[in-house]
Design a protein around this nucleic acid. Structure first.
Length: 642
DNA sequence: ACCAGGCTTCTTTTT
DNA sequence: GAAGCCTGGT
C-alpha cells in the first residue's frame, strides 16, 4: 500500500469522526464561509480536512493560502494537511506573507528588495533620533505616544489621523525609507497600498492564491481585513474561522466588527457554528460559559460537552506572590506524582510578564523544569542584536539604527555630536554610511577617533569580504570573533559568561538554519529572525512546565492550568478598568485562560503583592466571583496533604 | 567623550 | 526594585 493510500485512509477515518456541523464546514468548497468555532471545538481538524478535501477534488495546493497569526499555528496547519494528502500548501503568518509580497514588489514603492524589518526597539530608537533632530530640546516630546499614534494610523489605513503627530508621522516615514526599512505595520500596510495602486499586481496575487483561509479571524485589524478582502475580491473563496469570545487584541487594532459583519461584507456567506467542545470537563466549561455571559457585547453562544463533570475548580488564596508561587510549585509536584500529569501538560498563565519572576524562583528552588514563552526573546538580547546589527549593516548599508548600534563598539571616541557629523557627511556626499568608511574621514578628528575610524573601516572591509566568500554561519562567527566585540563583553565580569553562551548559541542557530534551507541567504535569515513569534520555540514534547501570559495561551491546551494573580487591578488590569469595553476584553482573556484547561483548573490570587517596589493589598478579581460557587472550592495544599 | 551616581519611570497584553 | 535617563565632574 502506497503512502498516498495510507493518508487517504487516515483522512477518511478522521472524516467519519466529525459531527454534522464540522462536516458541513469540512465539505465546503467555493464561496465565503464563516466558521464560528468555540474553544476546543475541533476547528484545526476541520480546517485541515477541508483543505485536504479541496486538494483531493482537484484544487492545486499552490493556489491555497492559509493565514495565521503565529508561526506555530501556521506550521501546525501545514503539517496536518500534509499528513492527510502528502502535499504542502502555503500557510504563513500575515506578517511573513506581507514580507514575501514586499520582497517581490516593494520596488514599485521605491525601496530595494533587501529592505530591513525594524522591530519595536529599532523603531523607538529611530523615533528618538528624529525627535532630537526635529524638535528643540525644550519641547518635551512623548515618543511613546507618537509611536502609538503612528501605529494606530497605519493599522487603520490612514483613517486614524492624529493632527498632533502628523508632521512627525511624515518625518518618520521619510526616515524609514531612507534607511530602506519597514516596520511591522508596514508589512501589511504597504502590500495593501500596492494592491490598491497597482491593479495588475493585485490581479497577479488574486490568481496565484484563489482559495484563502484565515484563522483567528476575530483578531484581524483593518489592514488585515482589507488585505484579505482585496485578495479574494475576484474568487470570493474565503474560509474564515474565529470566535468573537476570544477576541483579545483590540488594543492592537483588532476589530471585532470584521467577524460580526462577515455576512454583510461577503454576500451569500454561509455560517457554521461549532459549539460542541471536545476539550474540557463540564465543570470547566460551565464556569467559562458563566463568566463570558457577563459580557453584553456578544453573539449568544453556549458550549456544551460530554466529557463528564470532572473536578471542581480549585481556588487558592495566597498571602503574597511568593506564597502563590510556592503553592503552585508544590501543587505541580503533587499533580505529577499523584495524578500522573506530566509537566508538559501543565501551564501557568499570568496577566503581565513581570509576574513570571516569582514562579521562576520557586520552580528553580524545587528543581521543576520550566520554559517561559514570550518575555524577552533570544533575538532581543542586547548582545544578539548587536551582532545582528553588523550583519544588517552589510545587507543595508544605510541602516542608520544598525550603524549607530555598532559603530562605537568598543568605544572609539565617537560621541553623539561626532556621529551626527558622520551621518550628515554621508548624506552630503551621497554615499551610504557603510561606504563613507571606505575613504579617509572627511573631517578633523582626535587621535583616538582617527584610530577608531581606521579600525572600524577595517572591520567593515573584513565583514564585506566574509560575506562574499563565506557561508552564513561563518559570517556570523566572524561578526562575533573578529570585530572586537568580545572586548565589549569581557568588560562586564558579571554577565560575560552568559553573553558568550548566547553568542555561541547564535552561531549554532545560524548553522542549523543554514542546513534547513535550500537557498540560505542573509536577507532571509534576518527576515525570519525579525518575524519570530513568541510561541514558536514552545516544544510541547519536552517535559517542562510552561509559563506564559494569557495572551500567549490562545490556541493551546493543557491538562492542568494555573490562572494566577486573579486580582482586581491586575486581572482585570488597572489600565482597562476605565472603560466597560476594555473590561469585557479582559473578561474574554480570562475566558481564554479557563478554556485552555482539559481536566484541572487552579485559580490563585494573593492578598498582598509587591508592585513597583511596594507592598500593596490586593482584592480578588471580580472574574473569580463570576464563576458560580457550586463549581469552585477553596484549596490549601498544606492542610490537605501535609 | 565618558563615567559614576542619583533620579524617574515603569508593567499591560505582541506581530 | 530594576533599567533607563539625566547631570555634573573628570
Amino acid at each position: 500500500m502506497g503512502k498516498k493510500d495510507i493518508s487517504m485512509q487516515l483522512l477518511e477515518k478522521e472524516f467519519n469522526t466529525l459531527n454534522p456541523e464540522q462536516r458541513q464546514a469540512a465539505l465546503h468548497r467555493e464561496g465565503p464561509l464563516l466558521v464560528l468555532a468555540g474553544a476546543g471545538s475541533g476547528k484545526t481538524k476541520v480546517v485541515a480536512i477541508r483543505i485536504a478535501h479541496l486538494i483531493n477534488t482537484g484544487i492545486d495546493p499552490k493556489n491555497i493560502l492559509g493565514l495565521t497569526f503565529t508561526n506555530k499555528a501556521a506550521q501546525e496547519m501545514k503539517e496536518r494537511v500534509n499528513r492527510f494528502v502528502g502535499k504542502d500548501i502555503i500557510v504563513s503568518t500575515f506578517h511573513s506573507l506581507g514580507a514575501r509580497i514586499l520582497r517581490e514588489a516593494i520596488h514599485y514603492l521605491g525601496y530595494t528588495p533587501q529592505f530591513a524589518i525594524y522591530d519595536e526597539d529599532d523603531v523607538e530608537k529611530l523615533l528618538k533620533t528624529i525627535a532630537k533632530e526635529a524638535f528643540p530640546a525644550e519641547v518635551k516630546f512623548d515618543v511613546k505616544k507618537a509611536r502609538t499614534a503612528i501605529s494606530a494610523n497605519k493599522n487603520a489605513l490612514g483613517q486614524h489621523e492624529d493632527k498632533e503627530y502628523d508632521q512627525f508621522y511624515q518625518l518618520y516615514i521619510k526616515k524609514l525609507k531612507e534607511c530602506n526599512a519597514v516596520d511591522f505595520d508596514d508589512l501589511l500596510f504597504l502590500p495593501v497600498t500596492l494592491f490598491r495602486d497597482f491593479p495588475d499586481l493585485l490581479a497577479y496575487y488574486q490568481n496565484r492564491w484563489n482559495y484563502l483561509l484565515v484563522d483567528e479571524y476575530q483578531d484581524t485589524n483593518m489592514v488585515q481585513y482589507e488585505f484579505v478582502r482585496l485578495l479574494v475580491a475576484k474568487s470570493q473563496n474565503l474560509f474564515v474561522v474565529g470566535d468573537p469570545d476570544q477576541s483579545i487584541y483590540s488594543w492592537r487594532g483588532a476589530n471585532i466588527r470584521n467577524i460580526l459583519h462577515f455576512e454583510n461584507d461577503y454576500p451569500g456567506a454561509q455560517i457554521v457554528r461549532l459549539e460542541q467542545n471536545y476539550r474540557s470537563t463540564e465543570t470547566i466549561l460551565q464556569a467559562a460559559n458563566a463568566v463570558i455571559q457577563n459580557n453584553t457585547q456578544r453573539f449568544k453562544k453556549s458550549l456544551w460537552c460530554s466529557r463528564g463533570e470532572g473536578e471542581k475548580i480549585n481556588v487558592y488564596t495566597a498571602q503574597t506572590e511568593r506564597d502563590e508561587a510556592e503553592f503552585v510549585a508544590n501543587t505541580i509536584t503533587h499533580l505529577q506524582s499523584v495524578h500522573d500529569i506530566p509537566l508538559n501538560e501543565v501551564v501557568i498563565f499570568y496577566r503581565t510578564n513581570f509576574q513570571s519572576r516569582a514562579f521562576e524562583d520557586q520552580l528553580i528552588a524545587k528543581r521543576i523544569p520550566y520554559t517561559i514563552v514570550g518575555g524577552i526573546s533570544f533575538y532581543h538580547r542586547k548582545e544578539i542584536k548587536d551582532i545582528l546589527s553588523f550583519l544588517r549593516l552589510l545587507e543595508h548599508p544605510n541602516d542608520l539604527i544598525a550603524f549607530l548600534r555598532v559603530v562605537n563598539l568598543p568605544k572609539r571616541g565617537f560621541g553623539e555630536q561626532f556621529l551626527a557629523k558622520v551621518v550628515g557627511a554621508a548624506r552630503n556626499a551621497n554615499v551610504s554610511l557603510l561606504d563613507l568608511f571606505t575613504a579617509p574621514s572627511p573631517f578633523a578628528m582626535s587621535a583616538k577617533q582617527k584610530e577608531g575610524w581606521q579600525d572600524f573601516a577595517q572591520i567593515l572591509a573584513m565583514l564585506k569580504e566574509a560575506k562574499a566568500s563565506k557561508s552564513l554561519s561563518e559570517l556570523v562567527r566572524a561578526a562575533i570573533m573578529e570585530t572586537k566585540y568580545l572586548e565589549v563583553i569581557n568588560a562586564d565580569t558579571e554577565t560575560r559568561q552568559e553573553k558568550r553562551e548566547n553568542l555561541a548559541e547564535l552561531i549554532v542557530k545560524a548553522e542549523e538554519w543554514e542546513q534547513s534551507q535550500a537557498a540560505p541567504s542573509l536577507t532571509k535569515f534576518l527576515e525570519e529572525i525579525a518575524l519570530v513569534t513568541s510561541t514558536d520555540d514552545l516544544d510541547t514534547t519536552e517535559l517542562r512546565v510552561s509559563l506564559m501570559t494569557a495572551h500567549n495561551g490562545k490556541g493551546l491546551e493543557f491538562q492542568a492550568v494555573f490562572l494566577v494573580g486573579i486580582e482586581e487591578e491586575l486581572f482585570p488590569h488597572v489600565n482597562s478598568k476605565k472603560s466597560e469595553e476594555d473590561v469585557e476584553e479582559e473578561r474574554r482573556l480570562f475566558y481564554v485562560g479557563i478554556t485552555r484547561a482539559k481536566k484541572i483548573l487552579y485559580i490563585c490570587h494573593a492578598s498582598f503583592r509587591h508592585l513597583w517596589g511596594t507592598l500593596r493589598h490586593m482584592r480578588p478579581s471580580r472574574f473569580l466571583y463570576e464563576i458560580p460557587a457550586e463549581f469552585r472550592k477553596k484549596t490549601n495544599l498544606y492542610s490537605s496533604y501535609y
